[in-house]
Simulated assay, not measured.
Amino acid sequence: MTYNVQIKVMPLKDLLDPQGKAVMSGLQNLGLSGVEDVRVGKHITLRIDAETEEAAKQIADEASKKLLANPVMEFYEIEMIN
Rank of each mutant, 00 (worst) to 15 (best):
V9P: 05
M10E: 15
M10P: 01
M10K: 00
M10A: 11
M10N: 07
M10W: 02
P11L: 14
P11R: 10
P11W: 04
P11S: 06
P11C: 10
L12T: 04
K13H: 15
K13Q: 14
K13L: 13
K13V: 14
K13N: 14
K13C: 08
D14Y: 10
D14R: 12
D14W: 02
D14H: 07
L15M: 11
L15D: 00
L15E: 04
L15I: 00
L15S: 02
L15C: 05
L16V: 00
L16F: 02
L16P: 03
D17A: 13
D17E: 05
D17L: 13
D17H: 06
P18H: 05
P18S: 05
P18R: 05
P18D: 03
Q19V: 14
Q19C: 07
G20K: 02
G20Q: 05
G20S: 10
K21D: 08
K21Q: 10
K21F: 00
A22D: 02
A22E: 06
V23C: 11
V23L: 10
V23S: 02
M24I: 01
M24Y: 05
M24T: 03
M24G: 04
M24S: 14
M24A: 11
S25V: 12
S25I: 08
G26P: 01
G26N: 07
G26Q: 10
L27S: 02
L27F: 10
Q28W: 06
Q28V: 12
N29L: 12
G31K: 00
G31N: 09
G31E: 05
G31L: 06
G31H: 00
G31F: 00
G31D: 11
G31S: 04
G31T: 07
G31Y: 10
L32C: 06
L32Y: 12
L32M: 00
L32Q: 00
S33L: 14
S33H: 08
S33A: 08
G34C: 12
G34N: 06
V35P: 02
V35M: 14
E36Q: 13
E36A: 11
E36H: 14
E36Y: 03
E36M: 06
D37H: 11
D37P: 03
V38G: 07
R39Y: 07
V40L: 04
V40D: 06
V40Y: 05
G41N: 06
K42S: 08
H43P: 01
H43N: 15
H43C: 08
H43E: 13
I44D: 03
I44M: 01
I44V: 14
T45I: 01
T45W: 01
T45R: 13
T45C: 10
L46H: 11
L46S: 11
L46A: 15
R47E: 15
R47G: 08
R47P: 01
R47H: 13
R47F: 12
I48R: 07
I48Q: 07
I48D: 04
I48H: 03
I48N: 06
I48A: 09
D49I: 09
D49G: 07
D49R: 09
D49Y: 00
A50L: 03
A50V: 10
A50D: 03
A50F: 01
A50C: 13
A50P: 09
E51D: 14
E51V: 09
